[in-house]
Design a protein around this nucleic acid. Sequence first.
DNA 1: CATGAATGAGGATTCATTCAT
DNA 2: CATGAATGAATCCTCATTCAT
Lengths: 210, 210, 210, 210
Amino acid sequence: MTSSSAARPPRSDAVRNRQLLLRAAAEAFAEQGTEVTIAEIAQRAGIAKGTVFRHFATKDDLVAAIMGEMLDNLVASGMRLAGAADSAAALLEFMTTGIELLARDRALCEVVGRPSLQHPAVRAGIDRLCEVVETLTDRARRAGAIRQDITGQDIVLLLGGVHQTAAPLADVQPQLWRRYLGLTFDGIRAQPAQPLPHPPPCRFEEAGIH
Amino acid sequence: MTSSSAARPPRSDAVRNRQLLLRAAAEAFAEQGTEVTIAEIAQRAGIAKGTVFRHFATKDDLVAAIMGEMLDNLVASGMRLAGAADSAAALLEFMTTGIELLARDRALCEVVGRPSLQHPAVRAGIDRLCEVVETLTDRARRAGAIRQDITGQDIVLLLGGVHQTAAPLADVQPQLWRRYLGLTFDGIRAQPAQPLPHPPPCRFEEAGIH
Amino acid sequence: MTSSSAARPPRSDAVRNRQLLLRAAAEAFAEQGTEVTIAEIAQRAGIAKGTVFRHFATKDDLVAAIMGEMLDNLVASGMRLAGAADSAAALLEFMTTGIELLARDRALCEVVGRPSLQHPAVRAGIDRLCEVVETLTDRARRAGAIRQDITGQDIVLLLGGVHQTAAPLADVQPQLWRRYLGLTFDGIRAQPAQPLPHPPPCRFEEAGIH
Amino acid sequence: MTSSSAARPPRSDAVRNRQLLLRAAAEAFAEQGTEVTIAEIAQRAGIAKGTVFRHFATKDDLVAAIMGEMLDNLVASGMRLAGAADSAAALLEFMTTGIELLARDRALCEVVGRPSLQHPAVRAGIDRLCEVVETLTDRARRAGAIRQDITGQDIVLLLGGVHQTAAPLADVQPQLWRRYLGLTFDGIRAQPAQPLPHPPPCRFEEAGIH
DNA sequence: CATGAATGAGGATTCATTCAT
DNA sequence: CATGAATGAATCCTCATTCAT
């Protein structure tokens, strides 16, 4: 590893282009889902299509990078909430944050709705998401604030489910998901009326999703 | 009302091909969603592409025919349940039937998840679905068997939502949706812990979906 | 040739269907040109597509039959005029009749505009047309009523040309062709201002069109 | 007006391909009319089908570009002639140029024969054509060199008409149109034997063609 | 590194013609 | 004979990805 072969720092215009690309792609994916074309993303970013492929070898890689970062942000806010005093409130706040994200981003919905088909980087993000949700859920469960039979994986899945419930009317009632989050969280908090008809979900990892 | 000018019965080979087509298309849509190509459907049916277009002028018409029939079947089972003695049990059974259908059919999920974009025939089916669900829900509500603030439109939306909750693990735990249906139905049945944080959804019709 | 193998007279329904077909096809070709589909013709005739092909083996044969008959009618009216006292007036009247026909029939325009590509039956019709026009023209020329350097083939070609001049405005001014027929016939009748810059057209037959 | 942000000049290979495409398309349209397939044009140009669509978004746009340029060239030559001393000779020369063009290009014939159906760019070209022809015709009329009742629109229409007269024999006598141009121009120049049987054509614009 | 031109594998749809009923 | 179902070649157009400049 001589100094001449040392990785040179990226050129400043390359850094800037990457920023432009990431921002444009995030916007485009949020609005139109992963079906948006590379051409449109490049145009929004004000760069050429070829430049997109210089930064990300395939479209999937680009999707994964954007989605991965969103998931990481979500994980970070979960970690902040992991120290909160009121563990049930923390869990509710986390779910709120997560569903808000889904409600704003069509691509994220696709990605969390079919984890088995995803790029490794996305799956890693989902893994980290699962971990932090597990932590939040465990705390609430141990505190007796939620049903004992609810797992972290339940909560992860419910993010997508609650969002999807309201999604068909999202254009008309963009906050409708709060209704179903309220209903669902009532169910989670309540003492069980009766045992759930199916055992808890297995973790994505056990599911062979990796 | 017979008549000498009556249209002759459809030819047996045409009937058979139509059956093959409908069956192949239903299967293909169920497995792969509406993105499956006409070429694949034709191949599965063992007929030529042109024959598909003889029976259905456009791909959308084919999708609509298949989805419309599924919705009609669902509506029919809803109507049967509308006379049941136990209105809450009837509603639960209806939801079970609906989600089972969604769990088996990717195209149906697309269709009920984005009603605003659909073919008229599908929208009509969704309308009928909404009506029968309204009936079932009203009965349960009047009987005091479910929360007073739950509407038929809530239930329609929850079909898609509960299904989606379990969908990411559908390959591994195909019955997992029963868990979330149980949890949700507990919430619907329970006396409200607290008022829901958002008013009821508007009907699709009011949403300008028509 | 036993009596049992003698050609049986066509069934009456077949005769009737043929009439319906010819009428419908004539209309459709007139309105839309030869690009009209067999499906539309069959529908207009109230018969099945297969029946079209029973009467005419190919679409071209059908076109040829219809066009041939139109040409024959035109030839017949030319023959009637061949005995008229005023040979120039007869020629003008014939041209009027011919262009009226073209103005009403898009397919006929296609057919006389590209005789080299046509079906034998059409070419035969065009041949007969040429003959009768030759007769009419010869009479007028011998009578000194038109320029001596005008041939029958000129007149045949001018039918299409005069019609085409007005065709772009046919929807708005359906009689406009009369203007150009007047202008052209003035030129044909006039004593030549100067010799024509190109020798007469060869006959279609010499042109290798057969 | 140079600038550091000026768009860089088009790449040489792109320019070359565009030339190849335009040349191939012009040839193909000339020979076979607008019905020639994109596949054939691409093959003639030695490029891929996709490249055609990169340069022209739709087949119609390609047609319009080629036809537009032809019309523009014709307009330019009309403008050059608008200053000539002998206005009748100028008009004749212009008609000669125009019909020569038509004789060589089947697509151009389609385009001027059905102006109402055309792409905006083509209609604009036809508009400009009409204007320059109007100018040439007005000059000749005012000079008393042609009949007083002939308008520019007549001349535009006659281009197509004279060409069509000779078109059926174009393969055998490619110069035959000169004969009919001579005949027609004699008629235009002559003092009217008698008034024309129909008023002048309306302009395309008045015809609702725009 | 950036550019944007070129590629080519599909995908939906049309229609003359054939042929089983 | 009539029917109309089936065929499949042909057509326009899209888009992720590669690569010459």
